[in-house]
Amino acid sequence: MTMSTLAINLAGVRKAFGGKIVVDELSFSVARGECFGLLGPNGAGKSTITRMILGMVSPDEGEITVLGQPVPTRARLARVRIGVVPQFDNLELNFTVRENLLVFGRYFNKSAREIEALTPSLLEFARLESKAEVRVAELSGGMKRRLTLARALINDPHLLIMDEPTTGLDPHARHLIWERLRVLLARGKTILMTTHFMEEAERLCSRLCVLEQGRKIAEGKPQELIDAHIGCDVVEIYGGNPRDLCAQVGPYVRHMEVSGETLFCYSSDPEQVRAQLRGRAGLRLLQRPPNLEDVFLRVTGRELEN
């Protein structure tokens, strides 16, 4: 890929805070128009990476290029075409929805008239048409997130950077955000998102990078990662002693992981696994197709904690 088709390029980026390495030899690139996910548990370095891409944290080593600009030296020029949805809402709580857009548009040197002209379409996009004159403090969590998203679009960005866009939202609000993000992708926007939410990554991301303690441990398309690392159905067994169960089903599975009180059996013949356990009281079995959660468990040996 040439630089002009890349929205983001990181090469050999390293960052330590007080001797603790937070991002280690990280390289990845995001093509224009794709949705790229940074997936990992809390403390994996996801937020630090997004802050480095915005020029708010300087890497100790390595090169970062965003929308053709070297970062952090010319990060300001990149930010002209970036919209940000931060992990924690930082809206103006005492301002109305409309005033929030007005104030934020001014940070991009837009005149009040330009912002007023943009406001109806942004409110429509965020499904907040009826809330224009409502104080933000009175909005629900989902509405605040949608306003943050609308605010991030005020400069018509090429690239959206979202740090945990649906964390803390109820399922309905989350699905509405996902649907809105798909609309943005259809319009050709590039999205970089961090998440520890597997369903979010599987639904939205065309490619993703799995992080653990600042290191990249896997990268690829969600389905390819699942096929490459798992490639068979999963039987989750709980309600018994996982160690005993291991011995019993061991010969019939490709691979097993114990996480908490649950035994994950990866087997191309799940019927055999079920047959072995038939008649054992108190066990609960769940057979399902593999997902990114299993990939994470496989490559790190542990679950993503929420």
Partner: peptide, 10 residues
């Protein structure tokens, strides 16, 4: 966090 929001703009 007002400054934090502003720092993500230009």
């Amino acid at each position: 966090r007002t400054w934090d929001a502003i720092l993500s703009t230009q």
